[in-house]
Design a protein around this nucleic acid. Structure first.
Lengths: 242, 242
DNA sequence: CGGTCGATTGACACCTTTCAATACGGGTGG
DNA sequence: CCACCCGTATTGAAAGGTGTCAATCGACCG
């Protein structure tokens, strides 16, 4: 049974901006179904022209690009509340792929209705643009991490970011957060080799900054981790959801 | 005297989608003036809440972030037609700075009118979202370059990208393009040291792939350069302008 | 029980960074 | 007109962070 938008589980989290009644009705009309997938399932492929757009309700995944030489660049990690397919919606085709890394539940929208966002619901269109700008912001930070930080700092930064989102979403219970990613995913996100990523993770473990193993991330002192990353902890902004 | 939108020089380039008459009238109302700046002038600062948004009419610049350790990450290069300040427009404040690297002419818009895009001109709002998505796409590619390519490949990629845009915009005359950037700018964009950037550039020069010096970039064989970068040359999409 | 996947480790090669020094053009003040 | 300073580009040498190669180990699974 598809979840009703009125009962959207995401609305319970206070990192998301509350939708008005009218907006909820509109999204409900827009929603064509719900999708449950297993880890490893590809949701969108680079170059594809998918008729479907998604909002992640539960579970996690990765966005990535595959290069000519076979290398993979993980663009970022997908968490509940993330909108998937914006590029396909506005530009016609995806520029990266999206794959589930844990069991996921996704809200499915019909792309052909996409334009009606702009025509009839300007607030929703604005939210969409907001999300695009937020993504641009994140990618700018990621670029700075990959470009300017050492492996140690970059990994600290990434784990910090993940934990922050996890806490905001209620996925982290008291500094402990389950994450389905592999070390290779993190390595591909930061442009590091798997081996070096592994060794750096164990260094973080030795220094009691972060402990990631058995699909579980533990961070005792977020502040210390952020220091190690050379970043400043900023409170997350409230975000809209689709 | 400020240029009239009806005579917008950008509209002459065929990389940009033609605006309808109504749209031109609307943009004209939105436009509050024109700004001419010298190289080195900061246009927007990270964290600022600028009341002004811009479209680059002439000249080039850079977007960049400054990290806690003082390092600088150049997010990308600004060319004519680029919209500057989207983040401030939708999220309230800029997440990166923008600085002119050559003399620039900018179209100035009033941010307080920003919302009217969405309320009264859904096509314009859509174009804005399109541009945000395109930027997201570009940043994804940049991330892949910095993360997965060697210095030699990354620099080839960057010069290729620059030349492609230059040609599309008519800034490149027969494989020759003036660019006001410094080697340090490119180094900061790709996460490389200045010294290594310099040496890699001279390697490109030796191999007759690209010659950048005296503020001029010469690329004889774009295909060969793209090969060196391990990228595939794709025709630029037509883009909207604001 | 063999086979696969992910995590871990050690050794070694090498791409990049850092440190230093030189060169060259443009601007400025004496 | 010349000395001097500053930003940018170049080069050489040495140090070091990361990548690559290889082997081991534990957990899960048919």
């Amino acid at each position: 049974m598809a979840t009703k938008c009125a009962n959207c589980p995401l609305q319970r989290s206070d990192v998301f901006i509350d939708l008005g009644e009218d907006e909820i009705r509109f999204m409900q009309k827009f929603k064509v179904g719900e999708l449950e997938v297993n880890p490893g399932t590809p949701l969108l492929m680079e170059g594809s022209n998918s008729p479907q757009l998604y909002t992640a309700l539960r579970g996690m995944g990765v966005r990535y690009k595959t290069l000519a030489n076979g290398n993979r660049q993980v663009i970022n990690f997908v968490f509940p509340g993330d909108f998937i397919g914006l590029q396909a919606g506005v530009m016609g085709e995806m520029q990266h792929s999206v794959e589930a890394k844990s069991p996921m539940t996704l809200c499915v929208f019909d792309r052909s209705e996409f334009w009606s966002f702009f025509k009839t619901h300007p607030e929703r269109a604005f939210d969409l643009t907001w999300m695009a700008a937020a993504e641009e912001h994140f990618l700018g930070e990621a670029l700075a991490s990959v470009g300017q930080r050492t492996a140690f700092e970059a990994i600290s930064w990434a784990l910090c970011k993940i934990m922050l989102r996890g806490q905001a979403l209620g996925l982290a219970i008291d500094r402990v957060m389950p994450i389905p990613f592999r070390q290779q995913d993190l390595a591909d996100a930061l442009g590091l080799s798997l081996v070096h990523t592994n060794k750096t993770l164990s260094k973080l473990r030795n220094r009691q900054l972060a402990n990631w193993g058995d699909e579980i991330l533990v961070v005792n002192d977020l502040g210390a981790l952020a220091d190690a990353a050379g970043m400043t902890l900023e409170p997350l902004m409230k975000r809209p959801i689709m």
